[in-house]
Simulated scan of single mutants.
Amino acid sequence: MNSSGSKNCFLQAPAFRHGVHDRLHQQILRLQVATMQGRDLCPSVEEVQGWIKQAQMLMANG
């Protein structure tokens, strides 16, 4: 299996999909607070979900 196929399998795995939005959002929030000392510029969970969907579409098409 090529690397693109294995990435697609990973992105579609239930363990990856379950809670990934919240975990990624928490990591971004921690980074934002650590680097900018504030939460106000951190993207919302919905915005992170959109990024993940876009990445999945890119993986499927590329």
Results as ranks from 00 to 15, higher is better:
Met36Tyr: 13
Met57Gln: 05
Ala55Leu: 12
Glu47Ser: 12
Ala13Leu: 08
Arg17Leu: 15
His18Met: 07
Leu58Lys: 15
Val33Ser: 06
Pro14His: 01
Ala15Tyr: 05
Ser44Met: 10
Ser4Trp: 11
Lys53Asn: 10
Val48Gln: 03
Gly19Trp: 11
Ala34Gln: 09
Ala15Pro: 07
Gln37Arg: 10
Ala34Tyr: 00
Gln49Pro: 03
Leu29Ser: 07
Met36Ala: 14
Leu24Gly: 02
Met59His: 09
Arg17Cys: 14
Ser44Gly: 05
Asp22Ala: 08
Asp40Arg: 12
Gly19His: 10
Gln12Lys: 14
Gln37Cys: 10
Ala15Lys: 08
Ala13Val: 05
His21Ser: 08
Phe10Gln: 00
Gly19Thr: 02
Gln54Cys: 07
Arg39Ala: 11
Ser3Pro: 04
Gln54Ile: 13
Val33Pro: 05
Gly38Arg: 01
Gln27Glu: 11
Ser4Asn: 11
Leu11Ser: 06
Pro14Cys: 02
Ala13Glu: 09
Gly5Tyr: 02
Arg30Ala: 14
Lys7Gly: 06
Ile28Tyr: 04
Ala34Asn: 03
Ser4Ala: 15
Gln27His: 09
Lys7Ile: 15
Glu46Arg: 12
Leu58Trp: 14
Asn8Gly: 01
Gln26His: 02
Ile28Cys: 00
Gly38Gln: 10
Leu24Phe: 15
Asp22Ser: 06
Leu31Tyr: 14
Gln26Asp: 14
Leu24Trp: 06
Gln12Trp: 05
Gly38Pro: 05
Met36His: 15
Gln26Leu: 09
Lys7Glu: 11
Pro14Ala: 02
Pro14Glu: 12
Leu31Lys: 11
Ala34Pro: 01
Gly62Lys: 00
Ser3Cys: 12
Arg39Leu: 06
